[in-house]
C-alpha cells in the first residue's frame, strides 16, 4: 500500500519533466539529422577542404565525451568567446545535436557509398546529370538503408537528453533527483520509475526502428 501511494505521489512529479525531455529529444534529433545529412554529403564532396573540415568535425565530436561537450558549451564557450547560446535548452539541443549528428553523418556517408555501383552506371547510361543521379537514384535508396540506424541513434539521443539535468534543465531525471534528495529512502523506487518513463518514451521509437528495418529491406539494390 505504501508503495502504491508513493508511486501515485512520484509519477506526477516526474511527469513535470516530460515536456523538457521530449522537447529536447525532438529538437536535438531534428538538429542531429540535419547535421548528419550536411556533414555526410560534405564528406563525399569533391573539394578536399570541405572533406577534411567535415572529417575534423566528425572525429572531434565522435571522439570526445558528450558530457564534456555539453559543459564546454555551457561553461567554457561563453567565458572564452563571450558567445551566449541563448537558453540552457538551446545549449542542450546544440550539444546533443552536434554529437549525434557526427555519428549519423557516418551512417549517411556509408549508406550512400553502399548503393551498388551499377545503379550509378545505369543512371549514367540514361544520361542523367550527376545531380539527378544522386537525387533520383542514389539518395532514395540510401535513405532506406539509413532508417534502422537513424532509429537506433534516435533512441540513443533520448537517453542522451538526461544529461541536460546537469546544466540545470528540469527534465525527468532532474525531478527524480529532487524527489530522492528530499526522501533518500525512496531512491530505488524513484529511479525505477525514471527508467520506466524513459522506456515508455522509447517504445514508439523502438517500433519505428523495426518499421524502418522492414522498409529498408525492400527497394534497395546491393
Amino acid at each position: 500500500m505504501i508503495t502504491i501511494n508513493a508511486i501515485i505521489e512520484i509519477v506526477p512529479q516526474l511527469s513535470r519533466g516530460l515536456g523538457i525531455t521530449i522537447s529536447v529529444l525532438l529538437a536535438s534529433a531534428v538538429f542531429a539529422y540535419l547535421m548528419a545529412f550536411i556533414a555526410g554529403l560534405c564528406r563525399l564532396s569533391k573539394n578536399i577542404f570541405i572533406r577534411k573540415f567535415t572529417g575534423f568535425y566528425v572525429e572531434v565530436f565522435r571522439g570526445t565525451s558528450l558530457i564534456v561537450q555539453l559543459f564546454w558549451l555551457f561553461y567554457a564557450v561563453p567565458m572564452l568567446f563571450g558567445i551566449e547560446l541563448g537558453s540552457n535548452w538551446w545549449i542542450g539541443v546544440i550539444a546533443i545535436g552536434l554529437n549525434y549528428g557526427a555519428y549519423l553523418s557516418e551512417v549517411v556517408r556509408g549508406s550512400i557509398l553502399s548503393v551498388a555501383k551499377g545503379q550509378t552506371e545505369a543512371a549514367t547510361a540514361l544520361n542523367m546529370s550527376s545531380f539527378q543521379r544522386m537525387r533520383l537514384i542514389i539518395f532514395p535508396q540510401a535513405v532506406r538503408m539509413m532508417l534502422p540506424e537513424f532509429g537506433n541513434y534516435t533512441i540513443q539521443i533520448l537517453k542522451g537528453t538526461s544529461l541536460v539535468s546537469l546544466i540545470g534543465m528540469n527534465d525527468i531525471l532532474y525531478h527524480g533527483d529532487i524527489i530522492r534528495s528530499s526522501n533518500l529512502s525512496q531512491a530505488p523506487l524513484v529511479y525505477f520509475l525514471v527508467l520506466v518513463f524513459y522506456f515508455i518514451i522509447a517504445l514508439p521509437l523502438i517500433w519505428l526502428t523495426r518499421k524502418g528495418e522492414s522498409i529498408s529491406k525492400k527497394g534497395v539494390a546491393s
Binding site: 551499377g118 545503379q119 543512371a123 547510361a125 540514361l126 544520361n127 542523367m128 539527378q132 535508396q141 539494390a221
Partner: peptide, 30 residues
C-alpha cells in the same frame, strides 16, 4: 551520351521504382 543506350549484364533496374517508373524517369527528367 543521349544518343547511346545500354543494357547491363546485371540489369541494374532501380529497385525503389515500379517498372513503369523505371522506364519513365529518364525521359521526364533528362
Amino acid at each position: 551520351r543521349g544518343d547511346i543506350g545500354m543494357v547491363f549484364q546485371h540489369f541494374n533496374l532501380f529497385p525503389h521504382m515500379t517498372i513503369l517508373e523505371n522506364c519513365m524517369t529518364a525521359p521526364i527528367h533528362v
